[in-house]
């Protein structure tokens, strides 16, 4: 394109974009960009975590009661699934560094599968909420156990509102992550990555780990508020 390449530019290095001086600059820029983006993501989820914090302090009773109705075994299984997916992501970056294409593709496909399993389980859980009338709105009804302190319906709705907002936003990030990994897998299948150039795998991995970590916080905050036997 350019009739006047910058002196340092290696014109035909595969994967090097025209405006970078060299591969190192390009790699540094990409990974800095992703780290900064993850910083914005922390602020994004931070808004909801703040709301959670405030209301949990004010309405602990309702939050504890709401939390006890969540399906703990399924939530725990889902946590395990996500941790496994993080492992496959980490291994796929290693495979890319070593240039093992088939291993890389296999691990990426596994990651996508784990992600889809997580989403499927999440959908099942949400469906449970519909049948239990735990979805905020006109049909909301929280049936409390007789041994509990009286639960205020409005405040219980706030718990479930936050539950849906937080897990929903997390699921949206998972869907985007699965999409990104679809593209990465396709690129890996086409042999686009080499031991020298696999930045996309790395930064997609960073994103995936971040989404994973968000869940690692969400799980105890939503499912494990007060699981002690009470009475």
């Amino acid at each position: 394109m350019s009739d006047s390449p910058a002196p340092l530019a290696l014109e035909h290095t595969p994967g090097l974009q025209h405006h970078f001086a060299d591969m190192e600059q390009q790699r540094n820029a990409s990974s800095l960009g992703m780290w900064i983006f993850l910083g914005t993501e922390i602020m994004f989820f931070g808004g909801m975590f703040l709301a959670y914090l405030v209301y949990r302090m004010w309405y602990f009773n309702e939050f504890a009661a709401g939390s006890r109705t969540l399906n703990l075994p399924i939530g725990a299984v889902n946590t395990a699934v996500l941790i496994c997916s993080s492992l496959t992501v980490a291994l796929s970056v290693r495979a890319a560094q070593l240039g093992k294409r088939m291993l890389l593709v296999t691990l990426l496909v596994l990651t996508i599968l784990f992600g889809l399993v997580f989403l499927g389980v999440k959908a099942y859980e949400w469906n449970e909420k519909f049948t239990e009338h735990h979805v905020p709105g006109y049909s909301f009804h929280f049936k409390q156990e007789s041994t509990e302190k009286p639960v205020d319906q409005g405040r219980a709705q706030i718990f479930f509102s936050l539950y849906f907002a937080m897990t929903g936003m997390h699921a949206l990030h998972m869907i985007i992550g699965v999409g990104i990994f679809g593209v990465i897998t396709w690129m890996a299948w086409r042999g686009r990555f080499t031991p020298e150039y696999h930045t996309p795998v790395e930064i997609a991995g960073l994103y995936w780990h971040f989404v994973d970590i968000v869940w690692i916080y969400l799980f105890p905050l939503l499912y494990l508020i007060d699981r002690r036997p009470h009475g």
């Binding site: 914005t40 602020m43 994004f44 931070g46 808004g47 909801m48 905020p136 509102s161 907002a165």
Partner: peptide, 20 residues
């Protein structure tokens, strides 16, 4: 990002009766 999530919560509250 903070205004983004805040507006999302407003939209969810209005459209889906989430009551934050």
């Amino acid at each position: 990002p903070v205004i983004a999530i805040t507006l999302v919560l407003v939209v969810l509250e209005r459209a889906f009766h989430l009551g934050i």
